[in-house]
Structures are given as structure tokens and as C-alpha cells.
């Protein structure tokens, strides 16, 4: 968390705005003020802390914008709405809200996992805000469909949703007031700092459904900005054939395969991930 100390939280009291996207999404800005703006969007599971190992390297050269999707981390849980967040468009419109409030133009959107497709939807909706896209371990569809291999069967995803519904991911009702910032019980706040991935089961269930049942294959062709696809050599959630599919369907995209395992290269291979992002952000400018 030390790296974060150099940044600033965008709270309404500082900006004079009401409950805007910046406080709703717990937006944090760090790094080089004159550098290119890089927005880091976390995926399903945890929050903006997912980026902690790559932020120092990126912040040396770039202005780094971090945020939590509504329902995750320190976002405003009261803004969460099952209907709005039952499609990725709801998340994409949050991204556009905060890009408008920060007055971003031609910024770089780095989306991990499901946020890769959220970025695809955001640039398709408004190409002026983001001039480049970095898709980290993206998948436009997780469930197999005919010849398309997403890596999962519908039954697999049902199993994940069942797992979430049977509530086995560890949540206690006492966490809700903590995340919502209950001022009466500040002692609970310290517990949260060790729980970057804790989410209200109801929120997690909806986000999992939205994530793993979405199909954004047709949206890939709508991307008209330079795009980098960053994938891991061994990733059970987004296997190489899915990375190849995304590469083939986004015109002019670049694909980089990191010698890393798992779905989160920003944690398992932070140096290589930061380097690949920086090269893409800086080299072509």
C-alpha cells in the first residue's frame, strides 16, 4: 500500500462534486503528472490492489489511475444495483463516467480478465477517451460454443455459480458495514485491509454470472484503437487459443505471451507485465 500514499483519492470534498464516479469507484491517481494516463481496471475476484506490484514501475513514467468496480474493494456498495451490473455495459459506462470526470483523452485502458471486455465496450461506445487498449488475459466468451473453444462448458460455469451460491467463498455479514464504511465500528476497518478479495456473496454471484456468461465476440471488431493482448503461457481461465481468437478478431492488434502461469500476470510476473505495458504505451508515441 506504500506506493498508494503518493497518490490521492478523489473524494467529493476535494472535488466539490456529489456522489460522482470518482468516489463511487474509489478512484486513486498516482505517478508522473505529465506522463501518459494509464487506467488500470481489475477483474472478477479482487480489487485495485491486484495492480500493486506493477504500479511502482508504471508510475515512474505514467499517470496511473486505479479504481474499484462497484461492488468490489472500497467502492460505494450502495451504488450497486443487480440490474445495472448484470451486463458488462453497466461497468463500461462507469468507466466512461470516471474518464469524463477526470477529463481523459487518448488515455490507455488496461483491463484485466473481464475488464478487458469492459474496455472493449468502453472504446466502442466512446473512442475519444481511450486511444489504446491493453487486454490482460482477455476472453470474449468463457463458455464453448460450436467450434469456439472458450475453455469451459456451460455446466462448469453453473458449478462456479453454484459454488458462489452455496456461499463457500468466505463472507461474513459483518463485512457489509465495513465495506460500506460504517462509522460506528471503525475497528472492523482494519480487518478489511487483509481481505482484498472479499465480496458480498450477492454481488459476487451477479458479477460472476455477468463475467462468465457474457459473449463479447462480436464486439472485438468494433475496436479501432491500437490494442495489446497480454496473456500467460499457462492460464486455465484464458487459454492460448482464446488469446489467439482475440488477436485474430481485433484488427491490427499485437499479442504478447508472457512466460507466466495463472490468470494474473500482474502478480505472478509483475516486471514482465509492467515492461510490456510500458513498451506499448511509450514506444509508439
Amino acid at each position: 500500500m506504500e506506493e498508494w500514499a503518493a497518490g490521492y483519492h478523489c473524494h467529493p470534498s476535494e472535488t466539490g462534486w456529489g456522489m460522482d464516479a470518482l468516489s463511487r469507484n474509489n478512484v486513486v491517481v498516482v505517478g508522473h503528472h505529465d506522463g501518459p494516463v494509464v487506467v488500470l481496471a481489475h477483474g472478477f475476484g479482487c480489487d485495485q490492489n491486484m495492480w500493486r506490484l506493477v504500479v511502482p514501475a508504471l508510475a515512474e513514467k505514467c499517470r496511473v489511475v486505479l479504481f474499484d468496480h462497484v461492488g468490489a474493494g472500497q467502492s460505494d456498495l450502495s451504488s450497486w444495483d443487480a440490474q445495472r451490473y448484470s451486463t458488462l455495459d453497466g461497468y463500461a459506462s462507469d468507466v466512461l463516467d470516471l474518464s469524463r470526470e477526470l477529463d481523459l483523452r487518448d488515455a490507455v485502458f488496461v483491463g484485466h480478465s473481464v475488464s478487458a471486455m469492459i474496455g472493449v465496450l468502453a472504446v466502442a461506445a466512446d473512442p475519444t477517451r481511450f486511444g489504446r487498449l491493453v487486454l490482460v488475459t482477455p476472453s470474449p466468451r468463457y463458455v464453448d460454443d460450436g467450434d469456439y473453444r472458450g475453455g469451459f462448458s456451460a455446466a462448469d460455469i453453473d458449478e462456479l455459480l453454484d459454488s458462489l451460491e452455496s456461499n463457500y467463498l468466505g463472507w461474513s455479514a459483518t463485512m457489509a458495514p465495513v465495506i460500506m464504511g460504517n462509522p460506528d465500528r471503525p475497528e472492523l476497518g482494519t480487518e478489511l485491509t487483509n481481505s482484498f478479495c472479499r465480496t458480498d456473496p450477492e454481488v459476487a454471484r451477479v458479477f460472476a454470472r455477468t463475467t462468465f456468461l457474457s459473449d463479447n465476440r462480436a464486439d472485438l471488431a468494433r475496436v479501432t484503437v491500437p490494442t495489446l493482448i497480454l496473456e500467460c503461457a499457462h492460464d486455465v481461465i484464458a487459454p492460448p487459443e482464446v488469446g489467439a481468437y482475440v488477436h485474430a478478431h481485433i484488427p491490427g492488434s499485437t499479442r504478447v505471451t508472457l512466460d507466466a502461469t495463472g490468470h494474473c500476470p500482474q502478480l505472478s510476473a509483475p516486471e514482465a507485465t509492467a515492461e510490456a505495458i510500458l513498451r506499448f504505451v511509450l514506444d509508439q508515441r
Binding site: 491486484m50 506490484l53 462448469d156 459454488s163 486455465v236 490468470h263
Partner: peptide, 16 residues
């Protein structure tokens, strides 16, 4: 379901 949870929660938490 456990694999997905492992990749999206357990493994990131361990790293962090």
C-alpha cells in the same frame, strides 16, 4: 468452480 476461485481469489491473495 474451485479452479476458478483459485485463479481469481486464492492465488492473488497469496501473492498479495
Amino acid at each position: 468452480g474451485g479452479k476458478l476461485y483459485h485463479e481469481t481469489h486464492l492465488s492473488p491473495l497469496l501473492r498479495m
